[in-house]
């Protein structure tokens, strides 16, 4: 690890000022991505600004939305009663991510900014990585990809966004609150991320120095059916091969509202708007679910090692749609 200056911030404005002032400064929250990548030699900031003592932890119900402070940990959010009652798919996604120890450290803001698990990105001895060294190529495409993206991916980069939490959050139209040196702004989470196929090295719309201060999650309407299914090799403590976050509002035998997020497949947490449109107005049933799943992955870009995900993602989505709607096989 490269040596760095360590500074502890106590006010949001101080933290933002410190990081903004130095191009090689970075925020340190839970550290689960930041320190890991510094040890690997992928990141080498000259200054770390510890933000864990900023007053940005905790949740607050604001009408039909839950405001989550960026420094709330994954475990804290999973234990939140509003989440348990009105956002069960968020709770499921949280508890299926990482391990308890990591969830006690990792913050909600940090989770949204977690970097890809691509081993070609995470090893600076690999010379080709468009994410690390723009223009150098992509070793993953030539290597042995499996835990990689098939949506929003191409020969330039197939890095997967591995967050579980972000999958239901994009489906729910969560809004990110950002503090920058010149003020605050808000952005819809699903607009927050860029595609690896288009810009491997720039992953989101944050400008250097900007800090996520919170996330606003609209609550599901009462009576909505929802769930999160994560498919992986191990039963626990593993990133998703594919996952599906689903919320449906069904009445009189018709789907009135559908929200679908897909994980484990996209270079960003994937909102499947076309699939949602396919479902709305249909009666819940295996046929409609299969149609929607086909639409959701129609733009997949695959390699021999990742092709199975196209089929698996569809089956995962169909299964979760069946489960939440109670439709038998």
């Amino acid at each position: 690890m490269r040596s760095f200056e360590y500074v502890r911030a106590t006010e949001v404005s101080d933290a933002v000022r410190l990081v903004s002032a130095r191009p090689d400064a970075a925020y340190l929250a839970g550290g689960t991505t930041q320190l890991d990548l510094m040890k690997d030699g992928v990141l080498g900031p000259g200054m770390l600004v510890d933000i864990t003592r900023l007053p940005l932890a905790g949740t607050e119900r604001r009408g039909e939305a839950l405001h989550v402070g960026a420094l709330t940990t994954m475990e804290e959010l999973a234990a939140d009663p509003t989440v348990a009652e009105r956002l069960p798919l968020v709770r499921e996604a949280l508890l299926k991510g990482a391990s308890t120890q990591l969830r006690n450290m990792a913050t909600i803001g940090g989770n949204l900014l977690q970097r890809t698990r691509c081993r070609y990105f995470r090893d600076p001895d690999v010379p080709k990585c468009n994410k690390r060294l723009p223009g150098s190529g992509c070793a993953a495409v030539e290597g042995v990809p499996r835990m990689h993206a098939v949506l929003g991916a191409n020969e330039r980069c197939i890095a997967l966004h591995a967050s579980d939490l972000a999958v239901p959050l994009v489906a729910l139209d969560a809004v990110v609150h950002i503090q920058g040196p010149t003020g605050e702004r808000r952005i819809l989470l699903r607009d927050f991320y860029l595609l690896a196929s288009e810009s491997p090295d720039v992953e989101n719309h944050l400008v250097h120095g900007e800090l996520i201060t919170g996330v606003e999650i609209p609550l599901l309407p009462a009576g909505a059916l929802s769930g999160y299914l994560k498919v992986r090799d191990r039963m626990s403590y593993e990133f998703a091969l594919t996952s599906a976050a689903v919320a449906l509002v069904i009445s009189d035998g018709i789907i009135h509202e559908a929200r679908i997020g897909l994980g484990g497949v996209g270079s960003r947490p994937w909102r499947a708007l076309d699939a949602e449109r396919e479902l709305v107005g249909s009666p819940p049933g295996t046929e409609a679910f299969r149609r929607a799943a086909r639409v959701a992955v129609q733009d997949a870009w695959t390699l021999p090692g990742t092709a199975f995900k196209v089929e698996l993602a569809q089956r995962c989505l169909v299964r979760e749609l069946r489960t939440v709607s109670g439709v038998a096989a």
Binding site: R8, G30, G31, T32, D50, T52, Q101, L102, M105
Partner: peptide, 10 residues
Amino acid sequence: VLSCLTLAAQ
């Protein structure tokens, strides 16, 4: 928590 991904200074 995991002490390997926590800085002592934190």
